[in-house]
């Protein structure tokens, strides 16, 4: 069982403290949601775990299925990332095939697995020859998910994976992620500003505010019965038509 543990993670940009002493653990078969407003430091955490940004201090320890720490070189076989903007995360110059075949090759897998990957994200094999501009937002994000799976990753960091998509296809992509998580026994870090999907699609929730985790726990506990004042404000701010019509009140 692969686990990723984050201990005392801190990132400073010049004088600005983006992430301040954050610790948590991702375990296989569980989805952890990291919620917070933009600028709260959640994307910086994603980028540190994906090794795109170097932490100022703290450590990220990845334990392999054998219980041994995964060596630095093999880190990317295990940890992959899905980006927010599907229109920016695929190179307009290259085909879908390139986007999938490269990570396969880099991690010692045959190119012939491309159709299987496409099938995993509910796309047909003929998508391989297309270029990003021929795809819809939802299709692009599926390709991005397939790319993250290509190296055989066990830990997936999904940074606002649906916030740039049209509302009617968001749930489809989230359901796909949830299905893959169960089928492949992945650990998923779901980063979002949307409390509702965080609650429905994750087992555990971490609430971030100004670089710190202010509240954590099982998702229902945190979002239905928030203890921290900031979490309460967040939960109260989300639009809730239920309150207006079912309980008869006017906003």
């Amino acid at each position: 069982m692969t686990t990723l543990e984050v201990r005392g993670l801190t990132k400073k940009f010049h004088r600005f403290q983006a992430v301040d002493d954050v610790s948590f653990t991702l375990t296989a078969g569980r989805t952890t949601a990291l919620v917070g407003a933009s600028g709260s430091g959640k994307s910086t955490i994603a980028r540190m775990i994906a090794r795109l940004v170097r932490p100022t201090s703290g450590e990220i320890v990845l334990t392999g299925p054998d219980g041994e720490p995964v060596p630095r070189r093999a880190y990317r076989d295990h940890v992959q990332m899905i980006f927010q903007d599907p229109f920016a995360s695929l190179n307009p110059f290259h085909t879908v095939e390139h986007h999938l075949a490269r990570p396969l090759r880099l991690h010692g897998r045959p190119r012939s697995e491309v159709p299987r990957l496409l099938e995993k994200v509910s796309l047909t094999a003929d998508f391989a020859a297309r270029r990003p501009h021929e795809l819809s937002g939802g299709q692009r994000q599926r390709i991005a998910i397939a790319r993250a799976l290509a190296p055989g990753a066990r830990v997936i960091i999904a940074d606002e994976p649906v916030s740039m998509l049209d509302v009617s296809i968001r749930l489809g992509v989230l359901k796909l992620l949830a299905r893959l998580q169960r089928e492949e026994n992945l650990s998923v870090l779901y980063i979002t500003h949307d409390l509702a999907t965080a609650r429905h699609f994750s087992d555990e929730v971490l609430v971030m505010h100004q670089g710190r985790i202010v509240e954590r726990g099982p998702s229902d506990d945190v979002l239905m019965r928030p203890q921290d004042p900031y979490t309460r404000r967040l939960a109260a701010a989300a639009p809730d038509p239920e309150a207006r019509f079912r309980q008869g009140g006017q906003p």
Binding site: R47, A50, R51, L52, R76, D77, Q80, M81, F83, Q84, D85, A88, S89, L90, N91, F93, H94, R102, P103, L106, H107, A144, R147, A150, P151
Partner: peptide, 23 residues
């Protein structure tokens, strides 16, 4: 993001420049 994605995939720097950025 696609450059970041290539780096996360484990592409080497020169390949990121030549294959992802240069075109």
């Amino acid at each position: 993001d696609y450059v970041a994605a290539a780096r996360v995939s484990g592409e080497r720097t020169w390949r990121v420049i030549c294959v992802e950025i240069l075109p």
